[in-house]
Design a binder for these strands. Structure first.
Lengths: 249, 249
DNA sequence: CGCGATTTTGAGAGCCGTCAAGATACGTGG
DNA sequence: CCACGTATCTTGACGGCTCTCAAAATCGCG
């Protein structure tokens, strides 16, 4: 694995995430503590592993820039993508609770992350209950995303699944400034989509074609344009719900 | 909905869960606080709704006895079972974080639960960081179970899925005393299994038949006997991992 | 004994997977 | 600037796993 350069260049008070509307405001004391908690920044290349399945990482991460994904694999290599990580998302909580991660995380684009030492998480619980609650908040949000994903893979048809992920990723990317207007820059191959949705590569490709023929979306290079939102939502059987400001670490 | 009788009859110090080996020990102060936190017990009948999708329940629950399940449904009625709840499991965390639950919970057997007021969860974070960490622990465990379930539904074949869910439920039930020896009392219809695994009822039935013909399991009434553990594990492509003592509230 | 819920079985259809091959894009070295 | 290898995308053909439809059998219960 390539050497990882970890050093603090960005004080938490100037964290780029603070400029985004979707995140909650923090008190000065909270930011001070987070700055103490922070070990540095880590930058990785596209395709780089961030944590390995069954590994035991001493670090926790908050994504500052870029996309990645969480996954699990079966012994024979079949892969299931569990979720995507974007700016503001927290990586590695499971390892502080169970010692080992039961899933892996891999970068899709170049990623910059904030690094925290896992063994100091406990002091966060003793000294900053508001931040402790934030950690629980983040875990609970992940749970909700997984619930929805499970419904998608278990009960939606192929075209519903594809429509749903696109809509879902579009909304998430919008909120953190990774999409603008109707355009979503998806740093993802069709194989990734297939592994996300429990479909084969070939069928994913043919389903995307239907969605293009439909006039729902257009795709060029790696960017998707949402042409007909209401039709996409209808096909996806998606139900909208408001999101208030959310925390991050 | 039937009237719900809530009153404290069991002090937390005599919580039946404390006798189970799988749970961690608590300090006197922790138990004292939990007893203050506790509002009472709630008993519901098989089939009763515990929380509804999109509802806003003011309560949190810890299961003391019985089985239930979490689920989500699509507008047209297709249902996905997300996970099962058994003694020691915590219900309703999402509602303290997002105001509304995005999933429902329903009882499979008669269930007894410990009831907590949602709005006092915050004082738990301020006064008992160890318990706060336990809440995070529980959320993180749920996340891990969902990860595994997603892999099952997304990437395992029908027979692998059925084998896996039986093995999984057997292990969980064993740890809390709901299974003994090789026998698992499953209070679940084949329709429930189908909705858990993303399969149709008919195909679930035929797949169970194969597993019986295999000599892996036998089924009579609602109890499943695991006849050949290693073959079941092999078919399920399950990977064992140790579990240390876990918390509950 | 009779009715509803659940389980079982068979038949046929279709959605989706696998296999295979060609097309396109992209980076690298000559 | 072109050649070439690798990764990704596309398309067609075919097979099969799983679905739907339908009906019979069994079970639970009043």
């Amino acid at each position: 694995m390539a050497a990882r350069d970890v050093s603090i260049r960005i004080p938490c008070s100037k964290c780029p995430l603070r400029d985004l509307e979707c995140f909650r405001d923090f008190t000065e004391k909270e930011v001070e503590f987070l700055h103490e908690f922070k070990q540095g920044e880590l930058t990785v290349n596209p395709g780089a592993p961030i944590v390995l399945e069954e590994s035991n990482s001493p670090h926790l991460y908050t994504v500052l820039e870029g996309w990645g994904f969480r996954y699990k694999t079966l012994p024979d290599g079949r892969r299931q993508i569990l979720n995507y990580v974007m700016p503001g998302d927290f990586i590695g909580l499971q390892s502080s609770v169970f010692e080992v991660m039961s899933h892996g995380v891999e970068a899709l684009t170049e990623m910059m992350m904030c690094v925290f030492p896992r063994d100091k998480l406990w002091t966060l619980y003793t000294r900053h209950p508001t931040l402790a609650f934030d950690v629980t908040w983040l875990a609970s949000r992940e749970e909700r995303l997984l619930d929805e994903h499970l419904l998608t893979v278990g009960r939606r048809t192929a075209i519903e699944r594809v429509a749903f992920v696109i809509w879902h990723l579009y909304k998430r990317a919008l909120s953190v400034g990774l999409a603008s207007g109707n355009r979503l820059d998806l740093p993802v191959t069709q194989q990734h989509l297939a592994d996300t949705l429990g479909l084969s590569l070939v069928h994913t490709n043919k389903t995307l074609k239907k969605l293009r023929a439909n006039g729902c979306i257009s795709v060029e290079e790696r960017t998707v344009e949402v042409l007909d939102k209401s039709k996409l939502i209808e096909i996806a059987q998606a139900q909208e719900h408001e999101e208030g400001p959310r925390p991050f670490l």
